[in-house]
Design a binder for these strands. Structure first.
Lengths: 267, 267
DNA sequence: AAACTAAGTTTCAAATAATGAAACTAGTTT
DNA sequence: AAACTAGTTTCATTATTTGAAACTTAGTTT
């Protein structure tokens, strides 16, 4: 660990913010200190500053810090402006209704899959997976199809960063096995998750590419082995391909209004 | 508008981030410069740093900046840990099914309403599209019920910061009118939005308070004048009160696991 | 109750990073 | 080709950050 930060004070403060978020629960100053490479007073001042700025929230009762609400506000702007979500939304709605299964929209963030939208079709079952959640790239459908269409150099960098942690009996557990799988995906134009991340959970995934072949993101339809199988999911390939094409089209035509009138919005 | 930042370099950088988000669309460096109080090279370096850090995203084609994806990841952690959303989720699900109308969960952030969850009666969960959105406090149901139960000092500060922009013929347009309305709300224990923000849109709102009366957030059921009226919405008061009470209870019992095992999660 | 311990907070001189006027570069328009 | 605009770099000055050490609580042990 202890990666070089660069970007001066601001970079260091953001590193602290990431560390707090990485805990996944409210965390005490001393716990943070134990994991941090910063000396005590330095870390202390960063935490104070971030708390003042509402980037962290302090619970005086438990004496713990967690990521603050200001992030929620900022992220809404990010989601609307810097992700595929607003462009893809209407198409995902249609897709979701047509297939009657859970649909995910994801992008690549560093070496991880970042889920940016989701539709629970049928029953709103189990997991509250939400926009903003991250997952591994090497063992998810969306992750693999995005990796498959990256340029070689980027792909190598990203593959190197995969943990290849074995989640199930089907998890691809090395770069070599993964590379072979990616070659297959390039041939087909789409990919599967064969219970590689969670037992019983399978999906078909389709990359969303620009006209020039650059990876924008990926779509997937998820189901369970109890309800269907890979052949069943493969039936969704045409509609997935169609949806991806529409998102590509709209993403390229996407242009932002050049007036800055405050929205009168209705929630 | 040239408010003092404090918190040194980090505070200034975050001010820049807010400014970018405030545009609500991708923005050029020069546009940002025109609105910013920082000299050109200073602003330039902040924007560079924030872009390096993925807090901003740069579109080289259009030469514009927008809030970056790193925020989406961080906000997920904030949403799960520093808001009422995870505690309220199951209760809102129940409420939403029972009332068959749109349900909102909000908190107060500075002087604004921050929506942290939403259920669209018809469709299943459609997250993040609305979580993170901010709205005015003086002319929304959730805003007013939260203001009504703040301690006097905080309330005064917050009321002072309201714009009292007139959205509709029913918008409360001054601090005095608002204060009278808040008194009413304190009497009743709940409040309405009588088309104050958008024509045709009405809601009942219920505060979520701790045992000691501190404001945690607010719930609302929204509908349209085409479908119902205030009397119709008032029928939801008992179930709203019940839901709020359950959220209060769970929020107080809420305790985080003290192990930090990485989640094996299933998306 | 004194001594010990751990967690959190403050101090302050030294080290470092941020600052911004001015100058420069690369496009665009007159 | 001159004038203008947007974006970028330079560098001496200035201000902020840094962290070892000391201090303050609050909790625990002897």
């Amino acid at each position: 660990m202890g990666r070089v930060t660069g970007d001066g004070t601001v970079g260091k403060a953001l590193e602290v913010l990431d560390q707090v978020a990485a805990f996944g629960r409210p965390v005490r100053f001393s716990e943070l200190l134990a994991k941090s490479s910063f000396p005590k007073p330095t870390l202390y001042r960063f935490v104070q500053t971030l708390t003042n700025q509402q980037m962290l929230a302090y619970d005086p009762e438990r004496q713990t810090y967690s990521p603050g609400v200001r992030l929620v506000r900022l992220a809404h702007a990010a989601w609307e402006q810097s992700t595929l979500a607003p462009v893809a939304r209407p198409h995902i709605d249609v897709l979701s209704k047509a297939v009657g299964e859970t649909v995910h929209l994801a992008q690549l963030d560093h070496a991880q899959v970042l889920y940016i939208d989701k539709r629970n079709a049928g029953q709103p079952v189990e997991m509250y997976s939400q926009a903003g959640k991250v997952g591994p790239a090497y063992c998810t459908g969306v992750g693999k199809v995005m990796l498959a269409f990256l340029d070689k150099e980027t792909a190598d960098t990203v593959i190197e960063q995969q943990s290849f942690h074995v989640f199930t009996a089907h998890t691809l557990d090395s770069a070599d096995v993964l590379r072979a799988e990616l070659e297959d995906i390039r041939q087909n134009g789409y990919g599967f998750d064969r219970e590689e991340h969670e037992p019983g959970i399978i999906c078909v995934a389709m990359p969303i590419l620009t006209d020039t072949g650059r990876v924008l993101g990926a779509l997937s339809v998820t189901s369970t082995t109890a309800r269907t199988n890979l052949a069943g999911l493969e039936a969704f390939v045409p509609i997935l391909k169609d949806t991806a094409a529409k998102i590509t089209r709209d993403a390229q035509n996407w242009s932002f209004p050049d007036y800055s009138t405050k929205e009168t919005t209705g929630i």
